[in-house]
């Protein structure tokens, strides 16, 4: 009896402690919505034929709903800001626990990074990921020197200083979330034309590092085992520079393993992308208008080259997608 009381007390305070953890963790609902992309996927109630993985160059440049509208294929973007290649690998691994797509499209931009870049980006991606072996591996592969694993288990260790910065958002979205992305696509309708970028710099080395190849191999073999096609792309973007040396290496890799590689950056002109109107940050990422053009082009290409099903005539799926499209259009108008 005595011990029961103590156990009840402990339970009570543990619940308070857990609540505090939830309260202090950023909600990523109105500010920094990029932090809500990983968990948005868990709410998705159907499977897809195509999965995109990569960094901001995928979630800003490819809109699955546009692709559905123009070519009828189903797809989802699992991208995050500065998503490094090992992060893409573990996120892909997690995705494959939920579904088995026909094609996985990987944007190769992150091949240039061989070290964790910033704690803040790790947080955006990992904070809201469901716990799994993949998450544990992902944290261990991603954390910078200053970070410790425990702070991912107990977010209060990272965010306790937010106690003075709590806003309405933190209470409003304590136990719920709202839609921030559309099949992983983040709408941005701002226009900021290209002006200039710093001069192209010489680099200490142009060779991708071993760790990048290691994870590219892992992605490739993981997909091979499951009989999924891997497609490599380089998304259109003017900066950071995509060096010729990078291009050569990717092409070499693609031909060695007989993988398709599309450099969409080099054909951006013919797709109709205009950096005067189609970018929201002067040419790093495409805005909605650019993404619309690119999605139309690439959706058709995928459908044709990989024999993907056109679901617009499938009653069940088209019903779901038509609903999604209505929501998406609404968001576009209000944005």
């Amino acid at each position: 009896m005595k011990y029961l009381k103590v156990i009840l007390t402990l339970t009570f305070f543990t619940i308070i402690f857990i609540l505090l953890n939830i309260l202090l963790k950023p909600k990523y609902m109105t500010d920094l919505v990029e932090g809500s992309m990983t968990n948005a996927f868990y709410k998705e109630d159907m499977v897809h034929d195509v999965i995109f993985i990569g960094d901001c160059e995928v979630y800003a440049n490819f809109s699955p709903l546009e692709m559905y509208e123009t070519s009828g294929i189903t797809s989802y973007v699992r991208g995050n800001s500065q998503q490094l290649i090992w992060q893409s690998y573990y996120l892909l691994k997690e995705t494959l626990k939920y579904e088995t797509p026909e094609v996985v499209v990987f944007n190769v931009n992150s091949m240039r990074y061989s070290k964790p870049v910033s704690e803040a980006y790790n947080r955006l991606m990992i904070d809201n990921m469901k716990w799994s072996k993949e998450k544990i591996d992902l944290i261990n592969a991603s954390k910078t020197e200053e970070e410790n694993f425990l702070s991912y288990v107990l977010p209060i260790m990272r965010y306790h200083s937010r106690i003075t910065e709590l806003t309405k958002e933190d209470f409003e979205y304590l136990f719920r979330t709202k839609k921030t992305t559309y099949n992983g696509f983040l709408i941005n309708k701002n226009i900021k034309p290209y002006t200039s970028f710093p001069k192209e710099r010489r680099l200490p080395t142009y060779e991708f590092q071993d760790i990048d190849y290691e994870y590219l191999d892992k992605i490739r073999t993981l997909l091979e085992e499951k009989g999924i096609r891997l497609v490599l792309i380089k998304a259109p973007s003017l900066y950071p520079y995509w060096y010729d040396e990078y291009e050569t290496q990717i092409k070499e890799y693609a031909s060695t393993y007989n993988i398709d590689y599309y450099n969409l950056k080099s054909i951006a002109d013919s797709i109709g992308i205009d950096y005067e109107t189609d970018t929201y940050d002067g040419g790093l990422h495409l805005n909605y208008y650019g993404a619309k053009k690119l999605s139309k082009y690439f959706g058709e290409l995928l459908k044709k080259n990989y024999n993907l099903t056109d679901y617009r005539s499938d009653a069940k799926i088209s019903e779901i997608y038509n609903k999604k499209l209505i929501e998406y259009k609404k968001a576009l108008e209000s944005d």
Binding site: S81, Q82, A120, F197
Partner: peptide
């Protein structure tokens, strides 16, 4: 001669570059 700003994805804050004749 030229000025450019590079935003980082998701976060505010810009890397600003001022280009002069011989250096940036």
């Amino acid at each position: 001669l030229e000025y450019s700003e590079i935003p980082s994805c998701a976060f505010e804050g810009l890397d600003k570059t001022y280009t002069y004749e011989y250096y940036e």
